[in-house]
Design a protein around this nucleic acid. Structure first.
Length: 693
DNA sequence: AAAAAAT
């Protein structure tokens, strides 16, 4: 256990006195009632509700004719769409996800004989494959960038056949393993349905037929109609391939380790250890006492003024960041001082650069200070910075920003997240990287396998830090932080950073500097919020109606099953849509998100996997097909639109009975929204969002 | 309920 490094006798920073973290309704109300003089920095004036500085502009109509004139429908034929989805988008991507895609195909696309290829075989074969790869973009992977891969082969994974021999025989008698997914589903269904035995049998039959296990009736009810899911899954082809992937990628790439050396997995806790899901009260925690920077304080300031070196400044310019945003101006100098930092800036305010750029700069400075600059490229060096994110897509996205910054000064990053073969990640680590960017599960996995050593990590960043403190994330995150160098710098960022992060702050941070942007919160942006009170049986039609328009739309659903259902329904209505949720394999997740980014598709239906951090340009409509349960979720989901000063609309669909709950949630979010009764076919009119920032 | 490692 790392000891808490707070000075003896020191008391916790005021913000993180555990008593502040207590969730109490009364506190919330007190805050809401607080008079202007006592309000917390960054919170809105108590009079903000109903407050609207400018008159709304005249209503803008999205009439049926306009929608049709805009050519939403008819779209491409369904068969060509299908082909397109399977084949297209694979070879014409222009950013880094392609590499993962390739890896995944590589690991399952060839040599499926039982024995996985030996590591060196694979390398040889890989290079041989280049001949018939003319149809795709040139490879661009770490090896090529580095121009050398002379890492020491002696510490490579044991050969596969050795491993197989060792593993065989113990494969079926593991009692300490975490329950398999099916088991867990079954457990849940028994709990949920209360009479799970018949589902259980059906599920087993499905499994024996090699089909997807049945969902709970519960799910089907949510989905709205009782068709046979396995049928649909086959047609959409999304589940079978997923399962093949899940099986396939590991076989080839999993390095050997003795089963007995593993700790029992706690990553997905066994049912008995796991508290049944009980939604917590959605309460507003105390906001942080923060240094507030005002937007005009940034006038004329440059990244160089903030202490960043020339190469980094240039790389930021290449990324399109000419001048620092307020949150960046506020936090970059403090990070460079080496202090722990808590940063709060609303969605889309530039947090990635706010922590990414100074992290790189500081790594360089620390190297220079130790006179070890020459060791920058030492093979097998342990990473010195770690950036944690809650989803794979976010980790990828962060890497896309941080990687070029790091590269500008000769540092390397690598992504470490699940759902893709770990081979390349491990390879990169063996060659040596400076910044690891990833998600908790795979990072822990590689630590367990002794392939990732965090003991040299000087700087740890938690993006979406408050989310990383939620149930299910907190413990892995704590375990990971304990593996980093004691006393290392910690940076916690989120748009909704509050005292919920106290558990981490108390253990890992010393006297953190807290920064936010004055007067800037979610509600002060460029987003128009609407709530439509609808009949639930019309929900899917209404989603289709709203989404049938030019422009990118992001639809949020509470469950994966409903997300799939909505995609299906949208396509029935001629609206081409793709899904993003955890039931899809990573290649598809990456591809589907990419299709929205590239504009190949205008509608993405996602679970909350897409709620936080994901940046897609020009999403101008967010539809919440299911209302969120937490105000923070509302803020993050709606933050997918209205980014960088652009305008956006958020439409939340609720049944009549949810009116009051929704009103209260919006109150907590400090968001003003208009409620309207809405029925299928009604004309949808929106007030123009205030475009002035 | 979703997400986060896999088998």
């Amino acid at each position: 256990m790392p000891k808490n490094k707070k000075p003896a006798g020191g008391r916790p920073a005021k913000n993180f006195d555990p008593s502040y973290a207590k969730k109490s309704k009364s506190k919330q109300h007190k805050r809401a009632d607080a008079s202007g003089s006592s309000r917390k920095p960054g919170s809105r004036s108590p009079g903000h509700r109903g407050y609207r500085p400018e008159e709304a502009e005249p209503k803008q109509r999205w009439s049926r004719e306009e929608r049709e004139a805009a050519g939403r429908s008819p779209r491409r034929s369904s068969s060509s769409r299908r082909d397109d989805r399977d084949g297209g988008g694979r070879y014409d991507r222009d950013d880094r996800p392609r590499r993962d895609d390739r890896d995944q195909r590589g690991s399952r696309g060839y040599d499926r004989d039982d024995r996985a290829p030996r590591r060196d075989d694979r390398d040889r074969r890989d290079s041989g494959r280049k001949y018939d790869r003319d149809d795709r973009a040139p490879r661009r992977d770490d090896r090529d960038q580095r121009g050398s891969r002379g890492y020491d082969r002696d510490d490579r994974a044991p050969r596969r056949d050795d491993r197989d021999r060792r593993d065989s025989g113990r494969r079926y008698d593991r009692d300490d393993r975490a329950p398999r997914r099916d088991d867990r589903d079954r457990d849940r269904s028994q709990r949920v349905a209360g009479r799970g035995y018949d589902h259980d049998d059906a599920r087993k039959r499905d499994r024996d037929r090699g089909e997807r296990p049945r969902r709970d009736h519960d799910d089907r009810r949510v989905a709205g109609r009782g068709y046979d899911r396995t049928d649909r899954d086959d047609r959409r082809g999304y589940d079978r391939t997923d399962r093949d992937d899940r099986r396939g990628y590991d076989r080839n790439d999993r390095p050997g380790f003795r089963e007995s050396e593993r700790r029992p997995s706690t990553y997905f806790p066994a049912k008995d250890d796991r508290a049944p899901y009980t939604p917590e009260d959605d309460v507003v925690l105390e906001r942080l006492q923060a240094e507030a920077i005002t937007a005009d304080a940034v006038e004329g300031v440059t990244f160089a003024d903030l202490g960043l070196g020339g190469n980094i400044v240039r790389s930021l310019r290449d990324l399109g960041a000419e001048h620092p945003f307020p949150i960046q101006a506020a936090t970059i100098p403090v990070v460079l001082e080496g202090r722990d930092v808590l940063g709060r800036g609303r969605t889309g305010s530039g947090k990635t650069i706010a922590f990414g750029a100074p992290t790189v700069e500081r790594l360089m400075q620390m190297w220079a200070a130790k006179g070890k600059a020459g060791e920058k490229r030492k093979l097998g060096r342990a990473p010195r910075a770690l950036i944690l994110a809650p989803t794979r897509e976010l980790a990828l996205q962060i890497d896309r920003t941080v990687q070029p910054i790091a590269q500008s000064v000769g540092l390397f990053t690598t992504q470490v997240y699940g759902g893709v073969p770990q081979g390349r990640q491990v390879g990169a680590l063996q060659r040596g990287v400076d910044i690891v960017i990833g998600t908790p599960g795979r990072i822990e996995d590689l630590i367990e396998q002794r392939r990732l050593d965090l003991s040299e990590v000087e700087i740890t960043v938690l993006d979406e830090a408050d989310h990383m403190c939620d149930l299910g994330f907190l413990e892995p995150v704590q375990r990971i932080l304990r593996r980093t160098r004691e006393g290392g710098q910690k940076l916690l960022f989120s748009a909704t950073l509050d005292t919920g992060v106290a558990a981490l702050v108390d253990e890992f941070l010393v006297d953190p500097a807290v920064h936010e942007v004055a007067g800037e919160d979610q509600a002060s942006g460029t987003i128009e919020h609407r709530v439509l009170v609808i009949r639930n049986d019309q929900k899917r039609d209404i989603v289709a109606q709203l989404a049938a328009r030019p422009g990118k739309t992001l639809v949020f659903s509470r469950t994966r099953a409903f997300a799939e259902d909505l995609v299906e329904h949208l396509e029935d209505r001629g609206v081409f849509a793709v899904a993003l949720h955890g039931d899809l394999n990573q290649a598809r997740r990456t591809r589907n998100l990419q299709q929205l980014t590239s504009g190949k598709v205008d509608v993405l239906v996602a679970t909350d996997v897409a709620a936080r951090g994901i940046h897609v340009d020009d999403i101008d409509l967010v539809i919440q097909a299911d209302a969120p349960d937490e105000y923070k979720t509302y803020l993050h989901r709606s933050g997918r639109t209205g980014r960088a000063g652009k305008r956006g609309v958020v439409v939340t669909l609720i049944p009549r009975g949810r009116h009051r709950r929704m009103t209260e949630l919006l109150e907590r979010a400090e968001i003003e929204a208009e409620f309207d009764e809405f029925a299928r076919g009604d004309e949808f009119t929106i007030a123009a969002a205030d475009a002035s920032e």
